[in-house]
Amino acid sequence: MTDDLHKACEVLRSGGVIAYATEAVFGLGCDPDNEAAVQKLLEIKQRPIEKGLILIAASWEQVLPYLDVSNLSNEQLHRAFISWPGPYTWVFPAKRSTPKWLTGQFDSLAVRISAHPQVQALCRLYGKPMVSTSANLTSLLPCRTTEEVRLQLASRIDYILPGIVGTQTNPSEIRDVITNQLFRAG
């Protein structure tokens, strides 16, 4: 397992796109600060940059550099904190310095502190968050097994981190941290 995690980190550092297990489905990930890697991921997904992306991390400290929390109340922050780690994605105001290739057309960024042990280990070893989007082509269902990822995406991505998805049946719930508005049910 450790060798697989080290290989995944090497691929991320070199600007590659990896597939990895999350709480419900396999995700596609790359280094959020590498514009070329993000563009490659968007091409694989056939996803418009305007939609913005999610960052997945092992800790709050990993996503904080991308977020502007200066005007958030303790209650708003508490909403997110009590749900983490877990399959909950929260949309926060983004810092002006956060790249548009992450935020898309928005002034916000979606972030999740994952409870999946492999995601936790990978982000800790990598030392930062990853971009996270479901591992599938736009018209197909998200992959839930390593074999499904191989069949659908092996020729398009740089590495598949072997793993097993968690027990969640749906991708993460997405809410706005300021208004608590539900964007996607989990």
Results as ranks from 00 to 15, higher is better:
Ser97His: 08
Leu122Phe: 02
Ala185Phe: 05
Ser108Ile: 01
Glu148Lys: 13
Val149Pro: 01
Ser83Ile: 01
Arg144His: 07
Gly104Gln: 05
Ala110His: 06
Glu75Asn: 09
Arg156Asp: 15
Gln62Leu: 03
Leu153Asn: 08
Gly86Ala: 08
Leu109Ser: 01
Ile174Lys: 00
Ile164Phe: 12
Arg124Ser: 03
Arg184Ser: 07
Thr138Met: 10
Arg156Val: 06
Leu102Arg: 12
Ala110Ile: 04
Pro142Glu: 06
Thr146Glu: 15
Tyr88Cys: 06
Thr98Asn: 02
Arg184Pro: 09
Pro87Gln: 11
Leu72Pro: 07
Ser139Arg: 12
Asn71Ile: 08
Ser59Arg: 06
Asn180Met: 03
Glu147Cys: 04
Cys123Met: 11
Trp90Leu: 01
Pro99Arg: 14
Leu137Asp: 09
Ser70Leu: 03
Leu125Cys: 01
Val149Lys: 01
Gln168Gly: 05
Gly104Cys: 12
Glu147Ala: 12
Leu182Asn: 10
Arg150Asn: 03
Arg124Asn: 02
Lys128Arg: 05
Lys100Cys: 01
Glu147Gly: 03
Leu64Ala: 14
Leu182Thr: 14
His116Leu: 08
Ser114Pro: 05
Pro93Trp: 02
Ile82Gln: 15
Gln76His: 10
His116Pro: 10
Phe81Gln: 06
Ala185Glu: 11
Leu67Gly: 06
Pro93Phe: 04
Phe106Gly: 01
Ala94Pro: 10
Val149Arg: 01
Gly86Trp: 08
Arg175Glu: 08
Leu151Glu: 12
Thr133Glu: 13
Thr103Gln: 05
Leu77Lys: 05
Ala94Val: 06
Met130His: 01
Gly166Cys: 06
Lys100Arg: 14
Ser172Asn: 12
Leu72Asn: 05
Ala185His: 13
Pro171Tyr: 00
Pro171Val: 15
Trp60Arg: 09
Leu182Ala: 02
Ser70Arg: 08
Asp107Asn: 07
Gln118Phe: 04
Leu109Glu: 00
Cys123Arg: 07
Gly104Met: 08
Val91Thr: 11
Phe183Glu: 12
Pro117Trp: 08
Ile160Trp: 09
Gln105Phe: 03
Ile174Pro: 00
Ser83Gln: 14
Thr179Tyr: 11
Thr98Arg: 09
Leu72Val: 12
Cys143Phe: 02
Ser73Asn: 10
Trp101Thr: 11
Thr146Pro: 01
Leu151Asp: 09
Ser114Tyr: 06
Pro117Asn: 06
Val63Asn: 07
His78Ser: 15
